[in-house]
Structures are given as structure tokens and as C-alpha cells.
Design a protein around this nucleic acid. Structure first.
Length: 1050
RNA sequence: GGGUCCGUAGCUCAGUCGGUUAGAGCGUACGCCUGAUAAGCGUGAGGUCGGUGGUUCGACUCCACCCGGGCCCA
């Protein structure tokens, strides 16, 4: 007869086993079926944050994908329709940077020389260069997502939807062109959005210079100014003071200087100068000064002292150098006061020819030269170094310059309050992100600068008239086509093709051309909720049904990226948050505790570990090691541990089950007794399963993935290391058929139940169990574990009292093992009784049914309840001469005697409570501190005692000849079993035995022969080892013995 | 400087509402158990629970300040 279950080959071999599962899923279209099955059910919308496929996926991508997958699988199993559209983020600076590097280009000038068209085509090629790697990795880790029909941000359809969004904003007057000062990367030649800047802060050292601006009327008088950006000084337009602050006029030699009175001591530290006068900042307003450099241009309103509230007295001199071209505050105050915007720096960050001595020099490189020049001309008070956080370009690491540049903005501040309200509706994990990092960011919201002076991106759909300057925003291809004068047959919405299209100006009839900018790539991905469907041009229903997303999960850095761009576009378009649940992931750190990165050399290739330990092990490690929102150190050792402990345990339990179910030829799904009629051990396992199912469900509903996984981990451990361990003997050769059936049914139910619970987490292992333990006996069962429903916890099968009682029984076992250990009598040697004291009547009652389990584990024949600890053990106090000696000198001898004879228990109680204990001695009363003595418990002769809190266990060590023989018999059984295994016999093989020995072993073999034969499946005893027998010498408690086993299958 | 998260054993992490003696895993030494296990169990060694102060009968837990780290923002 064919075995019911496939016997599981030894060895974990997870990677190979997983590959087989992948093949099964692929061939049977299980993923598709898991969606089609739920077609009529309530959707659960997952929105994929699109990765960029211009590099191989790293370990942190695996983390993100594992977190996405577990929730989607879980929701599917709880009956939801979870469609999962893949996506690719394809535009933007990172892509351009990579291509630039590959082509050996440096900067925009070289790109344009190379040709925008060729450059853009290279970008297009590069963005999906690693698509195959991504697909392969995605499939290998069991992340189910539709990668055959993904949304791709560079497609015309996608771009058109993005245009539509922009047009909606334009219609509401939220799209405007401004001249704000924005962080600008001179190398990339583009402004950066605030969320891009946010990614590039780093500590850096800059010059810190104190400069003297000479008063126009009194050349000996000057204004002291502090700056960390000397390169902005040539573009100086004014000086600002705080009107209501006090300013000091100080005398140093022939010169007089003005600076804030509060800051004078600090700035002038070590300089011999006297304060001669104090005036208000308002008194200084209107005074004029000489430009710092001879090449300064002649501008109206320039070079005067103005008042500004933003001037602080925290650092510097209280007089602020104003360069409207290079700072937000500067620009704004320049607008108010009609100051010129002096801009002596070009688009590549080099000085223009007007800044004569430094024409063509990169501004940061000019800093020291500027300082030297000022010093030479006596206009430098002092120069220091200053360490502070400064923003650098997040892609190319160039220092950013704050630049007044033309840029297009979305007026997000117009609906900032609404965004904050909507954010309150989002369920963030961890929760503090809502009010903390993300809420914080929203409350400081500034208008979104979305235009980029680059090439590879969604072109801004704005055309401008060359004649009258009129601009027009187009929200669809059709609109553009209607107005275009040269609409091409083959349309590509990218630069440079789109730039060729001209439109006739509706106002003056002039030629309109597209503005050169492209949109921030964050805007692209932020429109995913709409553009992935090409809505509203098609799939409008679908789009509506899929908004908002129920679940998104990305790394924490997306608070300023995708989390924001989704919310900002979604709030505007639909007045609803774009996502209901958002799981933020933290960084994956290398073994050195540092952020994993190629440049640091601590990056790990996911494939090495996937090939070695398998995807389930990696996934399980991610779920259990730490909550995903905590930075985690990724280590292969951790993955290996997940593999051995969790997956290994599951697999071994299955192997155990399959082996014995086959050996006994039992179909556990048939004739199994109702749970209520099963032994306590079985009811306990079933109860634990349902409690765990309830807990996993509750935690998963809360997106507490780690808590859910840890609960499951505890259950599997309990099942293996308590249920199976203690039930082993019931699985074979038992004469109690009902009990055997009960054990098989219980193990089968809990194991297949565990497979269901673990399916979202470790989909491969779950599938194997399902195939082997469920499908094999029930062809009507769902084709895959992933087409099953998540197990509902059955309250009727939960027994909290029983679970508590089992905990007590396990505690007793623990104490018993400790006592055994203490007694030095090995567990194979049976003992007659254990005395358990200190347990309540209720505990005793509850444990009644369970004590045999504990006794069997401890190999003790009987339990006795009650008694006093003092009957079995004595406390002893010992003086600590090392501390007592120095304190008490010669009295130490009397104290020692008193300590040894005192009531040790009493002494200990007192010392524990008060920190000291009093003791009467012949030499009077002394105070003992806890260090002054140690208390130990010593078992009385013939007992091994362990106490734990208020309870204790005492093993009676009395030995009888019968007990000794039983011990020897068990010893012999153990040796014979080991030999069977070494000889490679199957567990069902019958054997012939030989034995030759002396002493107790010999007596045991003679007196307990039947027991030994039954245990070892021996059907006959030979006089001599026969042909083919496996023989071995053994030593048992000093007695030599010779054993042999031989297979004699009938 | 501001916001936020964090600080518990050599390492990775638990620790519920404030409540008896702060726990696991890895590693480590010794021992035990094994007819599924690459497992399991016991006993050691290893802790000023970052620090100080406060509230409280009682603080790893709550509060304040400080120190250190990460992230974010100026």
C-alpha cells in the first residue's frame, strides 16, 4: 500500500524545497487564482511604492517587499480581494546621474553637447536594465505582485494622467511661477525640492569670517558682520539690524566698530577694545556704507542699513549681511525694501566675469581667496572655522547653494490645514509618525517647487508665448493636439520630442513653446493612485474603487518623499487621504551597525543568503527580529537561527508526523475523536493553537507584524518542545487505539493549522505542509495553502484554565529537572517520588490530569503533595570574613559563630527587607549588612530540593534494586536505539538482539527483557551475533557490555 | 538650536496598568535528554535597567533635567 504521506528527506535544504514550491505556484497559477477566487469580495487595496530598476535589489528592498507581502497574503486569506499592481519609478535625477556617469559626462553642458535625444534614450534604456533581476528576486522571495502588468511612470498614458493632475491644480490657481530662493545643485544644474534637500544634510566645516563694512561718511567707522559663506559677500546688497536691539560702538585704536551689544564680549574676546557708546538698532537704519569690493556695481537702494525682525542675537554680530540672491529671508526682505538682486554666480556655481578676481572660480573654492583679499585690505576682523550641518546634493554630494531662480510651484500651503486633518485619519505604524515626524513636516509645509531644469522626466505641460509671455497648461494629449500646429504622428511625451510641438497663442497669435522644465519625479510617483490606471482617461471606475489605498509600506525616508507626494496630490484631488494604513520601515544596517551601502562596503547581496538559507528564513528573521520600524542590524547568523529554530522545527515535526502516520497507517482525518474527549495534553495543544490564532489575527489587524510572528513562534516551539516531545510514545506501538488516533488527529490539526497561520509569513514552508499533510489525504482541499482561509479562532476549543495549569506543570518539570541536575542522578534512572509543596489547592486540582506528564518527563514514579520545605532542606548562613574582618576586628570570630548558628531563613528575610540584620553574639549586638553573609539552601540527606518563589520540589533519592534495574534497562534501550539508528534501520524494522554483560545490566536484561524487546522492536534474542549484525561494546555505569542488532523483518 | 525615536547581559531583543527575586535567544563553561530535530533542558559566568533628582508605600515603567546615539528640521 502506498504511504499516505510523503516521507520528508533528511536535511533542511530549504532553498531547493522552495524552488520546487515556486515552480508549483507558477505552473498552477496560484497567485492569479488567489485573486480570482476573491473576485466578488471586498477589495483590500495595496499600492506599490514603485522602485527604480536601474540597480539590483538590495537587502533593504527585501525587507520592504517582505512587509508588503505578508499583509497582502494575510488579507487575502481573511477573505479580501487583494489585487497587487506592480510599478516602476523611472524618471528623475537619480537616473540621469547614473547615465551621466556611464557616459562619462559631467554637467548639463556636456549632456547638451552629447545631445538631449540620445541622452534621454539612454535614460529610458537604463531604467529597466535590472528589471529581470527585480523580477527574479521578487519571485524568489515569494512576493506576490503583478509584475506582468505594472505601471511605469515613463509611459505616455502615465504622463498624461500626471498632466491632468497638474491641469487640475492650474485650474484652481495653485500652479504658479515664482522666483523663490531654492536649494540648488550647481553640478546637477537644478533646484531641489525640500524633501530632496532633507536627504542630504551632513556635518561640514566652513569658514567663519567677521568682516568690516566701512561707513560711507566716516571711513574709520565700520559695521561688523559675520558670515559662513564668504562667496556671497560680492553679491551683498544691504546690512540688516534688529531695530529694538542695543548696538555698541567700540573703539579699537583708530577704528570704531558697530555690533550688537550683547554679542560684543564674545566677538571681541581677546581684542583690546572699549565700548564708547550704545545706540538702538533703529538709529542705524538708513546709514550707508561702502561696497566691500571695488568691482561692485552701482545699484539703486543698495549698500544701506535696514531693519529686520529676523535678525537674532544668538550668534554672529547682530548685523546680517543681506544677499537677496542667496537666501530666503534675504530675498523676501529685498523685495520689501526694493533691494537689487545682485547675482554674481552663474548656473554652474562659478563667479561671473563681473566678480573680476574670481571669475570662473567655483564659489566654495573662492572662499579662502575672498577672505585673504579682505584681510589684505584691512576689512577682515578675524577668520575661524565653523562646523555645522549643511545640505548637500543627495545624489552627487555637491554642496547646495541657495539661489533665487525661476521655478514652478504648487501652492500646497493653500490646503495645508486640510492635509493635516486628512493625515490624522491615517493609521501610522509606528503611531508616533502621525503627530511626530510626518505631522511635523506637514505643519511646516511650504509650497512645493516641482519644476526641474533637467531632461528625463515628465515634461511640464506648460507652453509659453514667445511674443506676449502668455502661458497655458494642457491637461491631456487631446487638448494639446487640438491646439498644436505641428502635432507629430508618432507621439512621445518626453523631451526633446515634446519640445518640438508649437501652439498658437490664444491671446496674441504668437508661437507658444513649451517651458523647458520637467516635473519633480516625486510628483510622478505621488500621482500613482490615479496615473497607474491612466485615469480619468480610462479605468475611472477602477481608479475610484482603488482610492484610497488600504495599505502602503515604505522606508521612513519617504515621509518627505512618497508619503508626502501621495498625500499632497490625493488630498487635493479627492479630499481624502491617499492611504489608510502606512507602515514605515527603518534602515537595514550592516553588521557594523552602519547604514548598509555599497560605498561603505558593508552591503550584502541578498542572493548569497537566499541561496544558502532560503527566502522563508530571511522573511521570518525580518518579521521576528525586531519591529520593522526599528533600525535593524542584518546578520546572516540571525537568518540561520530563524532557519534552524523555526523552519527546522516545523519541518521536523512534519517529518515526524509523516513517518509515524505512514508506519501506523493512520489517516488522522478519519475516526478522530472529538476534541472534548481527548486527553488533556491534546486539548492543551488545540487550545494553544486557537489562542495563537486569535492573537495572530488581532496583531495582524493592527499591523503588528512582529508581535504576530512572535506569538506564532512561541506556539511552534510549544508544539514541538512540549507537545511532541511529551507525546512521542503515543505515536507508535501503542495498544490504546483511541489514544493513538487522538494524538495523530491533534498533531495533524495543529500542524496544518500552523501552516495556515504561517502562510502569510513563510509561504513556502506553509505550502509544503499543506501539500503533504492536507492535500495528500483530502483531494478536495484547496489546491494551495494560499487559497485557504485564515483560521478563525474557535472560542469553544480554548481552555484558559488548562493552559494555565499546563504552565504550572511545566514549571514543576523545570524545578524537577533542576533538582535532578543538582542530585547528579541522570534522568534515565527512575526515582520513586517527588514531593511538591507550596501549591494552592486550586493549582493542585487543575494540575491533576497533567502531573503524569511531568512525572514521565522527570522519570519519577509518584508525586506527593504538601509538606514543609524545612523538612527537606536547610538554610545555612555563612559569614563573609572579607567584609566582616575589616569592620569588626577580633569580634569577627564571635559574629561568625552566631551567624552559623542563627536562624538563617530569618536572617535572610531581615537583611532582604531592611538592608541589614541584627545579630546577638557573646560580644553584644552587631549589625550585618547583606554583603556580610551569604545564605544557601542545602538539601537534606536523601533529597534534592529546588524552590521557586513560594513553591518547591523535592526529589526523593532513595534507590532500590528494582529502580536500579529499571535504570539499567532504560540505559540498554537507549544504547540499542542508538545502534539501530547508526546501523541505518528504519523505525519499523524488527530486529534480533544479542547481549552479553554482567552485574545490574545483566539482571536488568534478564528481568526486564520483555520491556526492552518491546521498546526496541526486538522479536528475538540470539545467542551469538549472526551474519550482518551490527555489534558494539558499551560501558554502563562501569560495567562492560557487548550488544548487537540485526534486521529480521518478517 | 528645535522636533522625534531610542538607550535593559558581550551581541540581538522582551519587559502589559507602577507591584514579589528584571527575562529570552545567540555566544560561552559544565552537565542532562533524544526512536523527529541542524533541536531541546538544567546549572554557572554575564545587569549601577544611560545618569541625577522628583512623584509614590513601591519606579526599568510616570515626571523634570542632563549625558549618549539615530533620524528629521533649522
Amino acid at each position: 500500500m502506498a504511504p499516505l504521506f510523503k516521507e520528508i528527506a533528511p536535511g533542511l535544504n530549504r532553498p531547493q524545497r522552495e524552488e520546487a514550491v515556486i515552480q508549483f505556484w507558477r505552473e498552477s497559477g496560484i497567485f492569479q487564482k488567489s485573486i480570482e477566487n476573491r473576485r466578488a469580495e471586498k477589495p483590500f487595496v495595496f499600492l506599490e511604492g514603485p522602485p527604480t530598476a536601474n540597480g539590483k535589489p538590495g537587502v533593504h528592498h527585501i525587507l520592504a517587499r517582505a512587509m508588503k507581502d505578508v499583509v497582502c497574503r494575510y488579507k487575502t486569506m481573511t477573505g479580501r480581494l487583494v489585487e497587487r499592481k506592480g510599478g516602476w519609478d523611472t524618471h528623475g535625477l537619480p537616473v540621469e546621474i547614473e547615465v551621466e556617469k556611464a557616459l562619462g559626462l559631467d554637467g548639463k553642458k556636456e549632456i547638451e553637447q552629447y545631445g538631449i535625444q540620445q541622452f534621454v534614450e539612454k535614460c529610458r534604456e537604463s531604467v529597466l536594465a535590472y528589471e529581470q533581476d527585480w523580477k527574479k528576486t521578487t519571485e524568489r522571495i515569494g512576493f506576490w505582485i503583478d509584475m506582468e502588468n505594472p505601471y511605469i511612470t515613463y509611459r505616455n498614458d502615465y504622463i498624461e494622467s500626471v498632466w491632468w493632475v497638474l491641469k487640475q491644480m492650474d485650474d484652481k490657481g495653485l500652479l504658479y511661477e515664482g522666483h523663490k530662493v531654492a536649494p540648488y545643485c550647481p553640478r546637477c544644474g537644478t533646484t531641489l525640492s525640500s524633501h530632496e534637500v532633507a536627504q542630504g544634510y551632513a556635518e561640514t566645516e566652513d569658514p567663519s569670517v567677521y568682516v568690516k563694512f566701512r561707513d560711507e561718511e566716516d571711513p574709520n567707522r565700520s559695521y561688523l558682520v559675520w558670515t559662513t559663506t564668504p562667496w556671497t559677500l560680492p553679491s551683498n546688497a544691504a546690512l540688516a539690524v534688529k531695530p529694538d536691539a542695543d548696538y555698541a560702538l567700540v573703539q579699537c585704536g583708530a577704528e570704531t566698530w558697530t555690533l550688537a551689544a550683547d554679542l560684543a564680549p564674545k566677538v571681541l574676546d581677546g581684542i583690546d577694545a572699549q565700548i564708547v557708546k550704545t545706540e538702538k538698532g533703529s538709529d542705524l537704519i538708513g546709514r550707508r556704507y561702502e561696497p566691500l569690493f571695488p568691482f561692485a556695481g552701482d545699484f539703486e537702494n543698495a549698500y544701506q542699513v535696514i531693519g529686520a525682525e529676523f535678525v537674532t542675537m544668538q550668534d554672529g554680530t547682530g548685523i546680517v549681511h543681506i544677499a537677496p540672491a542667496f537666501g530666503q529671508d534675504d530675498y523676501e526682505i529685498g523685495q520689501t525694501h526694493g533691494l537689487p538682486t545682485i547675482q554674481l554666480v552663474d548656473a554652474e556655481g562659478r563667479f561671473t566675469k563681473e566678480a573680476e578676481p574670481w571669475a570662473g572660480v567655483f564659489v566654495k573654492d573662492a572662499d579662502p581667496e575672498i577672505a585673504a583679499d579682505l584681510e589684505k585690505r584691512g576689512q577682515l576682523l578675524k577668520s575661524e572655522r565653523y562646523t555645522h550641518e549643511y545640505p548637500f546634493c543627495w545624489r552627487c554630494d555637491s554642496p547646495l547653494l541657495y539661489y533665487a531662480r525661476a521655478s514652478w510651484f504648487i501652492k500646497t500651503t493653500a490646503y495645508k490645514d486640510r492635509m493635516m486633518e486628512l493625515n490624522d485619519q491615517v493609521n501610522w505604524r509606528p503611531d508616533h509618525i502621525r503627530r511626530g515626524r510626518f505631522g511635523d513636516w506637514l505643519s511646516n509645509n511650504v509650497d512645493w517647487a516641482i519644476s526641474r531644469e533637467r531632461y528625463w522626466g515628465t515634461p511640464m505641460p506648460i507652453w509659453r508665448c514667445g511674443e506676449c509671455g502668455e502661458t497655458e497648461c494642457f491637461g491631456s494629449v487631446a487638448e494639446l493636439k487640438k491646439r498644436a500646429t505641428n502635432f507629430p504622428e508618432k507621439l512621445d511625451l518626453h523631451r526633446p520630442y515634446i519640445d518640438e510641438i508649437s501652439v498658437e497663442c490664444g491671446k496674441c497669435g504668437g508661437e507658444m513653446r513649451r517651458i523647458p522644465e520637467v516635473a519633480d519625479a516625486w510628483f510622478d510617483s505621488g500621482c500613482a493612485h490615479t496615473a497607474q490606471w491612466h485615469a480619468p482617461f480610462e479605468n475611472e471606475q477602477k481608479q475610484r474603487a482603488n482610492y484610497p489605498a488600504d495599505y502602503i509600506s515604505e522606508a521612513i525616508d519617504q515621509t518627505r518623499g512618497w508619503f508626502y507626494s501621495l498625500l499632497a496630490t490625493g488630498a487635493f484631488l479627492y479630499d481624502e487621504p491617499a492611504y489608510r494604513n502606512c507602515l514605515c520601515l527603518e534602515l537595514v544596517l550592516g553588521e557594523d551597525g552602519q547604514k548598509m551601502s555599497k560605498s561603505r562596503g558593508n552591503a550584502v547581496d541578498p542572493w548569497t543568503v537566499l541561496n544558502k538559507h532560503g527566502a522563508d528564513a530571511v522573511r521570518w528573521n525580518f518579521y521576528t527580529a525586531a519591529p520593522p520600524w526599528q533600525p535593524r542590524i542584518y546578520s546572516e547568523a540571525g537568518v540561520a537561527e530563524s532557519l534552524n529554530k523555526y523552519l527546522g522545527t516545523l519541518q521536523n515535526m512534519c517529518a515526524f508526523f509523516a513517518m509515524y502516520a505512514n508506519a501506523e497507517n493512520i489517516d488522522p482525518t478519519k475516526n478522530s475523536p472529538p476534541v472534548k474527549e481527548r486527553p488533556a495534553m491534546d486539548r492543551w495543544a488545540v487550545s494553544r493553537f486557537h489562542s495563537t490564532a486569535r492573537e495572530v489575527f488581532k496583531e495582524m489587524e493592527e499591523y503588528q507584524i512582529t508581535r504576530a510572528a512572535r506569538a506564532l513562534d512561541r506556539f511552534v516551539d510549544d508544539l514541538s518542545n512540549w507537545y511532541v516531545r511529551r507525546s512521542r510514545s503515543r505515536f507508535w506501538g501503542s495498544t490504546d487505539e483511541a489514544d493513538t488516533l487522538s494524538a495523530f488527529a491533534t498533531l495533524h490539526e495543529t500542524l496544518t493549522g500552523a501552516a495556515l497561520l504561517t502562510a502569510p509569513f513563510t509561504p513556502f514552508a506553509a505550502e509544503e505542509i499543506h501539500q503533504n499533510l492536507v492535500r495528500s489525504v483530502n483531494p478536495d482541499a484547496p489546491e494551495s495553502v494560499h487559497l485557504c482561509s485564515f483560521p478563525a479562532a474557535d472560542e469553544r476549543l480554548m481552555d484558559a484554565d488548562l493552559e494555565r495549569a499546563m504552565e504550572t506543570a511545566r514549571r514543576v518539570t523545570l524545578m524537577g529537572r533542576a533538582a535532578r541536575n543538582d542530585s547528579k542522578i541522570r534522568t534515565r534512572q527512575p526515582l520513586s517520588r517527588i514531593i511538591l509543596g507550596g501549591f494552592s489547592e486550586a493549582e493542585r486540582e487543575a494540575m491533576n490530569e497533567l502531573t503524569p506528564i511531568a512525572l514521565e518527563e522527570l522519570n519519577v514514579k509518584a508525586v506527593e503533595w504538601g509538606g514543609n520545605l524545612s523538612d527537606f532542606a536547610a538554610y545555612e548562613a555563612k559569614p563573609n570574613f572579607k567584609t566582616l574582618g575589616p569592620k569588626h576586628g577580633r569580634a569577627v570570630q564571635q559574629i561568625a559563630r552566631a551567624v552559623q548558628t542563627a536562624d538563617a531563613a530569618q536572617l535572610k528575610r531581615e537583611a532582604d527587607k531592611r538592608g541589614q540584620a541584627r545579630i546577638q553574639t557573646e560580644a553584644g549586638e552587631f549589625v550585618l549588612e547583606p554583603d556580610d553573609f551569604t545564605v544557601s539552601m542545602r538539601s537534606r540527606e536523601g533529597y534534592a530540593v529546588v524552590s521557586n518563589g513560594t513553591v518547591f520540589a523535592a526529589l526523593d533519592l532513595t534507590m532500590t534494586p528494582e529502580l536500579i534495574q529499571e535504570g539499567r534497562a532504560r540505559e540498554l534501550v537507549n544504547r540499542i536505539q542508538a545502534m539501530r539508528k547508526e546501523a541505518g534501520f528504519h523505525v519499523t524494522d524488527r530486529i534480533a538482539l544479542t547481549f552479553e554483560g554482567v552485574g545490574d545490566s545483566k539482571r536488568a536484561f534478564e528481568n526486564l527483557r520483555d520491556d526492552i524487546m518491546r521498546e526496541t522492536l526486538a522479536v528475538q534474542i540470539d545467542d551469538q551475533p549472526k551474519e550482518g549484525a551490527y555489534a558494539k561494546e558499551a560501558e554502563i555505569d562501569g560495567d562492560k557490555a557487548a550488544l548487537s542488532v540485526r534486521r529480521v523483518n518478517a
